[in-house]
Amino acid sequence: MPIPEAAGMTRRERYEQKQRLKSLLIAAASTVCVIMALVILVPMTPGWEKVQKSFFDGTVLAKTFPKLLDAFTVNVMIFTWSAPAIAILGLLIALARDAKSPALFPLRIFGAAFTDVFRGVPVILTVYLIGFGIPGLGLPRPWNSPFIWGSLALVLTYSAYVAEIFRAGIDSVHPSQRSAALSLGLSERQVMRDVILPQAVRNVVPSQMNMLIALQKDVSLLSFIGPVEIFRQAGVFKSLFANFTPYVGAAIIFLIVTIPATRYADYLMARQMRERR
């Protein structure tokens, strides 16, 4: 018996539609179950009341949130001047490491040592050593400010990572592009600047976005050497109110910034994957 082709759909299409509907329902049901379980079961745990009081205290949150936002401007400030410096230094290091002429051999060694050292040491150690160490040499104020040297520590560490990403980007450009550009009579420098780098940079934008997100969080490490940014401010409130809610507040502020950024980075990454295919 021929199956009637309802709404102009083929048998296969109808089957697939049914399958889609089914998996959608299953996904919805399981999500609801999990959320219900969390909402109902977690408050039933014996420690919930205590946890709620010390981590999710509304009045503490209301009292501290504006000040936390204030402190977050310090993070934003440090981020704002560090990020461009990282991009520039990272690129220079990447170029130094890829320097071909033998005269630039020392530069290459330096670039390699730089990335090895700063990728090998935990950021917090670099922040400590540079943030306290260099000012300890006896620099006059304001040149011994922890803002300057702490930021430098971030810049050095992150440049090392960013440089490696740039290098990967440079390597990802097909060698024929170099040949093609050279054959037109361009100099090595022009080839790098006009042909290789623009493509390399574009190829690594998603990865570098992830570095920016990581940097945004690591700015908080400067709190260890003095600057009162959001993490430290939350810590002060924690001690003052004997309550962890300010940390939750700080986490919320971080998420407000990083979630959209992360989604955007993922979107860029996915788009690039599609383009490659």
Partner: peptide
């Protein structure tokens, strides 16, 4: 002037 098999254009 030289033209290659592929990946010529920027």
């Amino acid at each position: 002037g030289m033209v290659f098999q592929n990946f010529n254009l920027f």
